[in-house]
Nucleic acid binder design. Structure first.
Lengths: 231, 231
DNA sequence: GGAGAGTGGTAACGTTGATATATGCCACCT
DNA sequence: AGGTGGCATATATCAACGTTACCACTCTCC
């Protein structure tokens, strides 16, 4: 049997599993129930996914990918802050739209990061890097990622743990705004994009620094001048 | 047998379970393993706790209570803001000190709130109420509780999901400060960028530059890192 | 002293994740 | 065309799990 068919049954199993998970909950996802829902025998799961964790990773990836595909993410290079907000909203929206899947992916911190998890992190990191390049970042990139991740995670899990009639949308907007003020500056540290603007801004602010020796600072100034000249 | 003895064996079982949980992880907590560790037969668990969830609730309550007992919480009626900070720190500290227990209590949002969970919420709510009485609250009490809860939950779970060598304590202090500015009218002491922001921007934009040699760029990156660290 | 209630121990049931063994099918080579 | 090897399927099975039924014992109270 060519791998085409196997890929097809893989998809069928994955979709049946997601259906089962969202409709009957986490505990209903047993290898037998999945096999039955997909019209296979229990051992087939193991041939296709290795073990149950493999199956769960696969459905996480599939669910995340289809969610992303349903959204159009077109970053505006001129407003990285708006992009960050949109990215945060996207992460939260995924959690609210796919609670069971989200809990599977993000609830247990001891669970090793799945492919879907790292894929989401990649999206975030690219936006953070653009923010940093534009001089907006108040903290270093790694800390920014952690803050964004933590606020989104806390927002979704807390939202889901509240009974439906006590869920206040202000929780989400407030947390997003807090995240923003924690991560970004009120004004960008550089006026122009790219290394040239950053170099010029640093050149201007350099006299205040104390971390470098006189000699180091002198050489640094030369380099910054070369950078601003672009050659 | 008088209930005195039963209470004693209950305690023994609870402590054995916590020991098992923290030493060998979540999956090691089976009714049989717990019974063996406590020197009982498996059915005894059910006589004492009803079912396995009853046992887990009991250990959550016990773990939370002993943690609280080890801390002295003496609210200062004159500084409710400091009290809130201390309360948030307390919640986070509990999570970092008892990861397995915390995950059990807070990871799965579909799990019904245990006694320990609501006990922690009670502590929080009393502080929020005092904050509100003093006129410090920027949002209504329920939203404040949700924000505090969400930031703490996100902080702990994100912290635990990071590998140990990438855990930055600034994540916790930053999130606490964000929570504070989101919930209260207290003005944050925000530091302005100076050369740090510009250095960070240049660091992020550096790969695009062509004016410097590889060696120069490498040394420059080291200096920029030193500048952003401020020492 | 005997009846009843409650405790404790043994064995067992149904289900789960996972695997080993047997059965059937299809492409491929001679 | 007819074997033949390899692979997907199907059945049976395993150990471990949460949980419960059942039985023997002991203690209490009349």
């Amino acid at each position: 049997m060519p791998p085409r068919d196997q890929e097809q049954t893989r998809r069928r199993v994955i979709e049946a599993t997601i259906e089962l998970l969202t409709r009957e909950g986490r505990d209903a996802v047993t290898t037998r129930a999945v096999a039955l829902a997909a019209g296979l025998q229990p051992p087939a799961i193991y041939r296709l996914f290795g073990d149950k964790d493999g199956l769960l990773d696969a459905i996480a990836e599939h669910g995340f990918a289809t969610f992303l595909a349903s959204k159009s993410l077109d970053p505006d290079p001129r407003d990285p802050i708006e992009d960050l907000k949109a990215g945060w909203d996207l992460a939260v929206e995924f959690g609210l739209a796919n609670p069971a899947l989200y809990v599977l992916m993000y609830a247990d911190p001891t669970r090793p990061a799945s492919a879907a998890f790292t894929a989401g992190m990649e999206i975030l990191m690219s936006r953070i890097r653009r923010l940093a390049a534009a001089g907006w970042l108040r903290v270093d990139e790694e800390l920014a990622a952690a803050i964004i991740h933590a606020t989104a995670r806390g927002a979704v899990l807390t939202w889901l743990s509240l009974p439906e009639d006590r869920r206040d949308p202000a929780l989400l907007t407030t947390l997003r705004e807090s995240m923003l003020t924690a991560v970004t500056n009120h004004e960008p540290a550089t006026q122009e994009a790219g290394p040239i603007g950053a170099a010029r801004a640093l050149r201007a602010a350099l006299p205040e620094q104390t971390a470098l020796s006189d000699g180091e600072q002198h050489l640094l100034e030369e380099w910054l001048d070369r950078l601003t000249l672009g050659r």
